[in-house]
């Protein structure tokens, strides 16, 4: 469903700050894949997401989604297919608007018309959707009043309301405390299963990456250095991963060593 062919991204080409952030990435994602993406800081995970969702144009290569070439499509048009959640909980919702206004806007993608969608049925639907995170009685409150965890969970619910073909999660629980992270993670798992979503999730927790989903991809210095699926993935252990990294790159998994659990 998603295909990247020879995708390359160079930041600030021709300057002293020139940086090759993605180098000849080839990736094929099948419908229903749930992929955990790991890699040290600066390995290009966010850049990969930004390239797929169109935050900036890629330097070279081709991106196809559901058979359609989206390489040159503007970000807002790709949003019809792609749902995305950032690490920063404030990026996915409008803080100066109420929860119900935010949810109303998320019901469909694309330009809104001169109609009133804040109907009784829709309010009931919103109430039902935010019940798992205990916000049913606060629909009229401004989103800016919510905690980071509540806000991120709301973002997830909003993103899933339009059932995206592809869900990109960039360390979406990293800014939360362990308890809230767990709540958001459970909800994520629930939605992925319930809606049968195709998803790529960035995480720094290797143990979690081994347990979650059907596929694991490791990046380093702008390249995909490991891509394992199914049975092969399930048999992995964290030391295996670190060893594999050493073997391929001839160096130690420096910045993530501290996260080994």
């Amino acid at each position: 469903m998603l295909d990247l062919e020879h995708v390359t991204k160079v930041f600030e080409p021709g300057t002293v700050n020139e940086k090759l952030a993605l180098e000849d990435i080839n990736l094929h994602v099948d419908k229903g894949d749930v992929i955990c993406l790991i890699g040290s800081n600066g390995s290009g995970k966010s850049t990969l997401f930004n390239s797929i969702s169109g935050s900036f144009p890629v330097t070279a290569g081709k991106i196809t989604l559901d058979g359609k070439d989206i390489t040159k499509m503007p970000e807002y048009k790709r949003s019809f297919q792609i749902g995305r959640i950032f690490q920063d909980p404030t990026r996915g919702t409008s803080g100066s608007m109420s929860i119900q206004d935010n949810m109303m806007l998320s019901m469909s993608k694309g330009m809104k018309g001169l109609k009133y969608s804040m109907s009784k049925e829709n309010l009931k639907l919103f109430k039902e959707l935010v019940k798992p995170i205990g916000l049913s009685d606060r629909l009229k409150d401004n989103v800016g009043l919510l905690s980071g965890g509540q806000r991120q969970a709301l973002t997830l619910i909003m993103v899933c309301m339009s059932k995206p073909n592809l869900l990109l999660l960039d360390e979406h629980t990293a800014a939360l405390d362990p308890k809230n992270a767990q709540v958001v993670m459970n909800l994520t798992d629930e939605y992925i299963k319930k809606l049968g979503l195709t998803c790529i999730m960035v995480t720094h927790n290797m143990q979690f990456a081994i347990e979650f989903g059907n596929r694991l991809i490791m990046m380093d210095e702008g390249k995909i250095i490991l891509d394992v699926k199914g049975e092969e993935k399930r048999k992995l252990s964290v030391p295996d991963l670190v060893m594999e990294f050493r073997r391929k790159r001839g160096k130690s998994f420096a910045s993530d060593q501290g996260l080994l659990v």
């Binding site: 048009k77 995305r84 409008s94 935010n102």
Partner: peptide, 13 residues
């Protein structure tokens, strides 16, 4: 006005 990224994510120009 409050968050341009939200508008882009919702498929609006």
């Amino acid at each position: 006005g409050s968050n341009e990224q939200v508008i882009i994510s919702l498929g609006m120009d």
